[in-house]
Nucleic acid binder design. Structure first.
Lengths: 208, 208
DNA sequence: CTTCAAAAGTTGAGTTGTTGCACTTATTGA
DNA sequence: TCAATAAGTGCAACAACTCAACTTTTGAAG
């Protein structure tokens, strides 16, 4: 969720070889940075897309070639986040359980959030204060949940429509959200996932 | 969810005494009817609000005085539905449990859906085929769930933030959705709520 | 090195959802 | 009967988004 430090894109694809792709990523980042800065300064509804395009020194058409709708400017890292989430499940160390992998992922991403705390809470406030962004974030969360459920089904060998997959996915993404309210988020996440793992173990291996 | 038969509004407020309110309800209904007709004929994205306003013989300004956004034209009965849902919980017969009241409500509304089957399935197809409507419906469902959870908390005396309330609300609204897939929806709903009630009973009265 | 096709960007005009404003008309309660 | 109030109108505007035609860059193949 938190914006990258500034312009320096540290994503899951750290080596975009060609110059072309580098430039493309650069303009995309320039647009996202300009948008976030303006939104934080004056509020989401007070800034128009034209103004953002101007600030990033591109045309509005270019802006919309990079971001399908205005809300997507705020959730720049949406795609990367989902990719990282699925990767955390699919490429987990040998022998690691699904809940354990998800806990790892939740902890590391939460740490990154606690890192730039000022930036992050300002970002959270912005979303919370803007209905359009709340709705968009909600639907995004749902898409991630669905994608995760499918990945879990593939990895666990369960039927894709087994409610267990959807439940695990739902919980795994809900726990970090709920943990934000706690005074010690890391502790809350760890304990939530401990509980989840034990339940998961007994459900998938009923003989225990 | 299913549209009213045609123009004849059979809502929870069957006696709008004043002429003013009757006229207002009439134009509102005229707009919703025109919109649904055009949407079903040609698809949601192929019909503009100006055209709908023309078809209902009102100005677009008037249209937006009745419906906050275009999507709301499709879910005309949103407010009424939520009101009926909450009423089913709050004004349930003395001694009836919450899950039982919710099951009753689910069964009666599902019967109404099975009634005008052709209309209803066309409506469902329209929503399923239009991303904007899917998103809107999803958020609507969430609002209803939140409202129901609060009503459940008030009626049951549980703490408003008790996860049990949210869970019951979630399940009570999810069960009918899942039941649509079954060949015998009534059976599916009844059994789902039976299970829910027994679980609910033991959770609220652990000595049983 | 040249050339060529695809990708990225620009420009400008258009469509569509949505709102503001000033105004008319109808209903209602006093 | 008389104002207060609410519904509705017409028009103009704004903002988000799209489209079509055109220029520039870039990657690679001849």
């Amino acid at each position: 969720m938190p914006p990258t430090t500034t312009g320096t894109a540290t994503g899951p694809s750290p080596a975009p070889a060609g110059r072309r792709e580098r430039k493309k990523a650069a303009t995309r980042q320039a647009i996202a940075d300009a948008a976030l800065r303006l939104f934080l300064e004056r509020g989401y509804d007070e800034v128009g897309v034209r103004e953002i395009a101007d600030a990033a020194d591109v045309s509005t058409t270019t802006l919309f070639k990079h971001f399908p709708v205005k809300e997507a400017l705020v959730f720049d890292e949406d795609r990367d986040q989902e990719a990282r989430l699925l990767a955390a499940v699919r490429e987990r160390p040998e022998g690691q359980s699904l809940p354990a992998a998800l806990r790892e992922h939740a902890l590391t991403t939460r740490l990154a959030a606690a890192d730039g705390d000022a930036r992050f809470s300002a970002f959270a406030d912005l979303v919370a204060a803007t209905p359009a962004l709340r709705d968009y974030a909600q639907n995004m969360w749902l898409r991630h949940t669905a994608a995760l459920a499918q990945a879990i089904a593939e990895e666990s060998g369960l039927a894709p429509d087994d409610p267990l997959c959807a439940a695990l996915a739902h919980f795994a993404l809900e726990a970090p959200r709920a943990a934000c309210a706690h005074d010690n988020p890391r502790e809350a996440i760890t304990r939530a996932f401990d509980l989840l793992e034990h339940g998961w173990s007994t459900l998938t291996r009923p003989e225990a």
